[in-house]
């Protein structure tokens, strides 16, 4: 597979994503500069974490108008795989590829720590190699990760199975103590209806080898690789 990692001014997890794909998975990966308008034939576009445009105005609010985003939006709308991590998730909600918004953490502090995520959906291309209900250990690092949407829209998301990850404790129990930012229903990651676009606040690219404290991020990356491999076999 070929992965494109978008670099915005202020991205700071782009190299982590690049290293995870190239050095750990041994797959092709290219940086996509925010001013470029060419996705270079990538099978997956990653919008990485960081503070694009200094997070001025709101996280992701200005990045969504970068030239590359026009192509990313068209790619995602036509079924291409787009993964937004942390600031990338904020960009996906700002540009309307994913519903809702990410607000200031309810406690107003920046949170940087390992958390546990319960995998709620495995029919998704990003989690197909996980077991439903499986608990993943993946870190967060954000000040604006408090997922918000109106009650009706939350219900729609839940009913359509678009909530992919929830914050939970080590035993997989979803409770308020395990919620690091005040997100409604402990939501940590959601997909679009079709499942090809995923946004998540935690950082799977930071936990791809045991020496990093967890290799659970690989389960997501390996799910992506398996999805793309199948898609390529079918199209050939």
């Amino acid at each position: 597979m070929k992965v494109g990692v978008v670099t915005f001014p202020g991205s700071n997890c782009d190299y982590d994503a690049y290293a995870a794909v190239q050095h750990v998975m041994g797959e092709d990966v290219e940086f996509l500069w925010h001013k470029s308008t060419d996705l270079l034939g990538c099978d997956l576009v990653i919008l990485p974490g960081g503070f694009s445009y200094g997070d001025y105005l709101r996280g992701g609010a200005i990045a969504r108008f970068s030239p590359i985003m026009e192509k990313v939006i068209a790619f995602g709308r036509s079924g291409g795989m787009v993964l937004g991590i942390c600031n990338g998730f904020q960009i996906l909600t700002e540009c309307g590829l994913l519903p809702g918004a990410l607000m200031r953490n309810s406690h107003l502090r920046f949170s940087c720590k390992h958390v546990y995520l319960k995998v709620e959906q495995t029919s998704n291309p990003y989690t197909q190699l996980c077991i439903k209900g499986e608990v993943l250990k993946i870190p967060i690092a954000h000040g604006e990760g408090n997922y918000y949407n109106f009650d009706n829209d939350i219900k729609k998301l839940e009913d359509a199975g678009q909530v992919v990850f929830r914050y939970c404790d080590v035993n997989g129990d979803v409770n308020s103590e395990a919620n690091p930012n005040g997100s409604i229903n402990n939501i940590a990651g959601i997909s679009n209806k079709e499942g090809n676009i995923l946004g998540m606040m935690p950082h799977p690219e930071r936990v791809v080898e045991d020496i990093l404290g967890s290799a659970d991020g690989l389960k997501i990356l390996e799910s992506i690789r398996a999805t793309i491999a199948v898609a390529k076999t079918v199209s050939n």
Binding site: R58, T93, E94, A101
Partner: peptide, 8 residues
């Protein structure tokens, strides 16, 4: 489009 996020 920019100054406000109409969602919230």
């Amino acid at each position: 489009k920019l100054l406000a996020n109409p969602v919230i």
